[in-house]
């Protein structure tokens, strides 16, 4: 199953993904404004399984988890960028939103059809007939990803051991 690439530039910040003045709204409503300051059509046209592609420091700025929550609620399958801001990256993987660091992100064009093989660590660009390898996630996080995020992971640990120690 391939998804469509929505391509953005460097320094896509948390505030354009989740604007501060809308942070009181319920998550689904907030998500409908995601990235509207730079692409008014994004939230309306993105489909479950599509990809967001960025440049450097994707997710720079605030700690607000709603930036990653909004992308996830819109059905974004993965974010592919040359580099990520630390807090956004942690937020995304804690929620089970895949983030892939890839220098070649700059070769992906808007509308390209992409798909992923997470086990092997390969991104396919079907439109350009290219494939790219990426580094797998750090080993200590694979258990958490397999469990579906940080809270389900802790819940599982709690059930197995009776405490969070």
């Amino acid at each position: 199953m391939s998804g469509k690439a929505f391509v953005f530039g460097d320094n896509i910040d948390t505030d354009v993904m989740a604007p501060g003045y809308l942070m009181k709204l319920p998550p689904e409503e907030l998500a409908s404004h995601c990235l509207s300051a730079i692409d008014p059509d994004f939230a309306r046209t993105v489909q479950p399984g599509d990809f967001v592609v960025g440049g450097q420091s994707f997710g720079i700025g605030s700690s607000r988890e709603q930036a990653a929550v909004s992308l996830k609620l819109l059905g974004v399958k993965a974010v592919i960028a040359r580099s990520f801001a630390r807090i956004f990256w942690r937020n995304a993987i804690n929620l089970g939103l895949i983030c892939i660091r890839l220098d070649e992100a700059r070769y992906i064009a808007p509308g390209d059809r992409l798909s992923l093989d997470l086990q092997v660590g390969t991104l396919f660009n079907h439109t350009q007939d290219r494939r790219y390898s990426f580094d797998p996630l750090p080993g200590h996080l694979t258990g958490m990803i397999a469990d579906g995020g940080l809270i389900p992971h802790l819940k599982k640990r709690l059930a197995a051991k009776g405490d969070l120690a």
Binding site: S63, R64, E65, A68, R86, I87, F88, R90, N91, N94, L95, G149, L150, I151, L154, L164
Partner: peptide, 15 residues
């Protein structure tokens, strides 16, 4: 001193 999002923080205040 480092910043964290809500899920990391929830896990931190729990553990």
């Amino acid at each position: 001193a480092a910043g964290y999002g809500a899920t990391d923080m929830a896990a931190i205040v729990a553990t």
